[in-house]
Simulated assay, not measured.
Amino acid sequence: MTNKRLLYVTAFDDRHGKRRWRFRRKGYPPYSFKSPHGTKAFEREYAACLNADQAPVASRPSIPGSVSDVIARYYSDNAFLDLRPSTQGVYRGVLERFREAFGDVSIKAFDADRIARLMTAMRHKPHAAARLRKLLAQLLRLARRSKLVPVGFDPIKDTKAPKTEGGGYHPWTEEELAAFENEFPVGTKPRLAFDLLLYGAQRSGDVRLMTPAIIAGGRIRLDQSKTTNSVDIPVVAPLQVSLDAGPLGRVTLMETKDGEPYTEKGFYGMMKKACIKAGIPHCSPHGLRKAAARRCKDAGCTNEEGMAITGHKSEKEYLRYAGSNARPEVADAAMNKVMANRTVRLASTPSQPIEKRA
């Protein structure tokens, strides 16, 4: 990373003559780096800056007690300021869309009935609905504290977000994995993203911002952006073949045709189009991490071995590591089981193309 020019990052000397670095990109919040250039910590800060793709904050005056007023107060509250930059970017995106629709409406108008109707209108987007409901709870908590609504005004507790069908994103089956591999051979961008997601077993947000420094020496070493959990797992043979074939970006492994790191929406859109072309439109990149976890279970991995690969803290927050939770020796054992099971499965199952779905 130290030998490569980072997009949107420039150096300058401060008034003490010390070299500093800053991030500047149109439409993104400016940022001054806290960690020394070239370090892992610097790299994490850079990833967070790239991840903060949000709409600009409205600058017109807010009506006191309105949704826009409460959102502005929330942005300057510790509940928001203590969040990671990447999480702030995601939350701003949700809140700015909500502000655009309801900015001048009084926060008092969002009683249980109105919030319930909002949740019903978003049944086709259950994850987005749940996130909005969570943020509305934050706004209403701040509104109560600021005496913008009565102390007992807590309509969130009387509402429910729509249930996610099937318990979340669809986990890919072996037939669906084979369909994608048949459609996109090694050496194509969708296949590289697919192999990073499946054999790296990490979230899309971490995969799309991976740099060569994260995958070095035959291992994937990173602190997950969502949980800060550390993972240290081997780069298995199928993934190494895919990395060797590319195409690799200049700064991040996955880059757009313009040479820029993918945004969250851009990466999802690229993979979703590939899924449709492969005849599996119901699949999404998020489900590949589930497929990786399922493969661990099918291979006989223990919970500890599986979590060393995926980076989960626990099945249900029951297993936590003291200090550094990267477990390279446990991850190696788990990956060996997964690859051995894959070899047995390939030897015993004839290759059959999956019928494309309309």
Rank of each mutant, 00 (worst) to 15 (best):
S35H: 14
R133D: 03
A130D: 08
T211N: 11
V94Q: 09
S146M: 06
A293D: 12
C283H: 00
Y268F: 10
A109S: 12
F80V: 12
P238T: 10
A55P: 00
K40W: 08
L81I: 13
R250D: 04
R144Y: 12
G311K: 02
H170C: 06
L6I: 10
E260Y: 01
F153Q: 11
R44L: 07
V338R: 01
T10M: 03
F12I: 14
R44G: 07
N336K: 14
I215T: 14
N336F: 02
I63F: 00
K337R: 14
E100H: 04
H282M: 07
E264C: 03
K40G: 12
C275H: 04
L243E: 03
E260S: 04
S324D: 15
A358Y: 09
H124D: 15
P162H: 03
D77V: 05
A47Q: 15
V241E: 15
E329N: 13
T227V: 11
Y199N: 13
T10Y: 10
M271T: 12
Q240F: 01
L196D: 09
D195H: 02
F23W: 01
V241I: 09
P353W: 06
L136D: 06
D13E: 15
P56R: 04
R289I: 09
K189V: 11
I276A: 06
L135F: 02
G279N: 09
A216K: 10
N325F: 01
R20P: 03
Y321E: 13
Y28Q: 11
K34H: 10
L248G: 08
A101C: 02
D104Y: 00
S348I: 06
C283Y: 01
L319D: 07
T211S: 12
V251L: 04
R345E: 06
G266V: 07
R44V: 12
R44H: 11
R219I: 06
A143R: 02
L81T: 14
A179K: 11
K272F: 02
N325Q: 11
T302P: 03
H282I: 05
L209N: 09
G167V: 07
P212M: 09
T228W: 09
C49I: 08
R24L: 11
L253I: 15
G38I: 07
A47K: 15
E260T: 13
R221L: 03
Q88Y: 02
L346H: 07
R97D: 10
A130C: 03
A161I: 02
R133W: 05
T263A: 11
A331T: 10
Q138S: 08
Y169H: 13
C49L: 03
R145K: 14
G17S: 12
R24K: 13
K265R: 14
A278P: 04
A333E: 11
G17N: 11
T228M: 12
D195E: 15
K134T: 12
A201F: 05
A193N: 03
I63R: 03
C296G: 15
